[in-house]
Nucleic acid binder design. Structure first.
Lengths: 109, 109
DNA sequence: TTCTTATTTGGCTAAACTTGCAAATAAGCA
DNA sequence: TGCTTATTTGCAAGTTTAGCCAAATAAGAA
């Protein structure tokens, strides 16, 4: 890979990295359903320390996957991506297929 | 998140983690174009040590994103996912949008 | 201003990921 | 059998990430 190509794939990888954590995927799902949520909502949903959730949210924000708006003392996050559900479908397909393969291996032995 | 829900998102996150590296994304792209490639092909493409590339391939294999076939002394990898191009389109959209936002910020200041 | 609530950030530790080199396998060839 | 090629695996070092607690901000409310 030359420099330019590498940069392209690094940029893409950043997006995948941002999504590569169960808590962050859960957040994106919640934001697909609820339009917007405050940090407190998401903290309760995830069940970790609020500081941890806040850090997850900043990862998503840096990747450009969510937008932030502060109203009063609360901070609201919303998704900026509409095509994520397609991701999920594809991922679920892969997982289903993996499970099928596992089954096949079990039956074979 | 309860245990079951957590497990679901962890499984999904595994897939994203597997894709969250420039070399592995490059490999998936190559396998989308070429149907199959040996480790030597991919090693040349990526430009790292063959052992490193082999490790990347095993990450993709464990995630169920590629399949392996050994013929003679060579090992061929092929993609098992057809819906990945949709991923890429979506990711590129996000990146384009991020770039636009960056521009907006620059103009504003 | 002082107190309270919501959120972010600093600091630290533990765990996970990446990479190259060297050694181990595995398969074909002489 | 002994040699060469293709690939994987063990190991060690360096880098990144995740998580929690405590401290810092920021905005309302008293």
């Amino acid at each position: 890979m030359n420099k330019k190509e590498l940069a392209k794939y690094e940029a893409r990888a950043q997006i995948f990295k941002a999504l590569a954590h169960p808590a962050r995927l859960r957040v994106m799902d919640a934001l697909a359903q609820h339009k917007e949520q405050c940090v407190c909502d998401l903290t309760e949903l995830i069940g970790s320390d609020m500081s941890t959730v806040s850090r997850h949210l900043s990862v998503l924000k840096n990747a450009g996957l969510v937008a932030v708006e502060k109203r009063g003392q609360m901070v609201f996050y919303r998704s900026t991506v509409c095509c994520l559900s397609g991701f999920t479908d594809c991922v679920e397909k892969v997982l289903a297929n993996n499970a099928k393969q596992q089954q096949a291996v079990l039956h074979a032995s």
